[in-house]
Amino acid sequence: MAKLAGAARVKTFPAAGKQRSFRRNVTGWLFASPWILGLLCFYAIPMLTSIYFSFTTYSILQPGEFVGLNNYRELFHDPLFWKSIYNTIYFTVFFVPLSIFIGVALAMMLNMKVKGLAVFRTIFFLPTLVPQVALAVLWMWLLHPNFGLVNGMLASIGIDGPPWLSGEAWSKPSLILMSLWGIGQAVVIYLAGLGDIPEDYYEAAEIDGASWFQKTKAVTLPLLTPVIFYNLVMGMIGAFQQFTLPYTLTKGQGTPANSMTFYVMYLYENGFRYFKMGYASAMAWILFIIVMALTAVVFMTSKRWVHYQGK
């Protein structure tokens, strides 16, 4: 009888374990359900819907008709579409490398053992707390061609300042300058990466007689490449989505001569000013393909230049 009772108890253990596992799974799914519902309602369903809209003439006010690839064909014959792509690529090509170079340089300076280091770090981080609209208004006054502070300082040393935002040749460089002023968040990430590099490497390099430049080249930069890789990807994605600064500076007009019409600005104008939502959806998916392709290229090449500790 004792053996039979023991056997019965053994048989009930797997069933009880499955029941507890099922309860844990249900509890976990219940806790995750708000996030899952949000993901479906605000990401998955809108994305799938926008694919369909990109093949229609949907305009918010009217359901539209299915037109196949007409929106995409029309985009490739739209000169302002190509102009917006050029402006966005121009900004990305110059801003992303400069932000990495200046961000790493600032992080290395802010990583030095000096008095008042926390104050300096706070000063360089403060611009990231300024809203984009306020930042645009501030720089509009600083770069005003007639009575702006920058041209005033240049005039004091005998240099005629450029027209900055009102000149086609200087509008995008001005925007790059404004954007570089707010790279404090990237600097903080670089500082975290520098703090993660073991001191043993620097001590070994110093014993071998390495100079500061040699230690930077052989130790700091290679071990900082994972952080540089992250900021490169995120910076590239953010640059292709540039919107608030140029839209505020030009009041949505992209002036002068559409030199400040960026891709997402033109997408917004088509979707919410002209109500060409199908056209805007097609633009959104072209942007998605471009960003995904560039990100894939960066990931594929990362094996050659990104170095992780212990590998």
Score class of each variant (00 low, 15 high):
108 M>E: 15
109 M>I: 12
109 M>K: 06
110 L>R: 00
111 N>S: 03
111 N>G: 05
112 M>F: 09
112 M>D: 11
115 K>G: 13
117 L>R: 14
117 L>F: 00
117 L>V: 11
117 L>T: 10
118 A>N: 13
118 A>V: 09
119 V>E: 13
119 V>G: 14
119 V>H: 01
120 F>H: 07
120 F>K: 02
120 F>L: 10
122 T>S: 15
123 I>Q: 05
123 I>P: 03
123 I>H: 00
125 F>V: 01
125 F>E: 05
126 L>T: 12
126 L>D: 02
127 P>M: 14
128 T>Q: 02
129 L>Y: 00
129 L>C: 04
129 L>G: 04
130 V>I: 08
131 P>T: 13
131 P>N: 06
131 P>L: 06
132 Q>I: 06
132 Q>M: 13
134 A>K: 10
134 A>C: 07
135 L>G: 09
136 A>H: 15
138 L>A: 15
138 L>P: 08
139 W>P: 06
139 W>V: 02
139 W>K: 13
140 M>T: 05
140 M>Q: 15
141 W>K: 10
142 L>M: 02
143 L>F: 12
144 H>L: 04
145 P>M: 08
145 P>C: 01
145 P>V: 10
146 N>D: 13
146 N>M: 12
149 L>D: 11
149 L>M: 14
149 L>E: 13
151 N>Q: 12
152 G>I: 12
153 M>D: 08
153 M>A: 15
153 M>V: 13
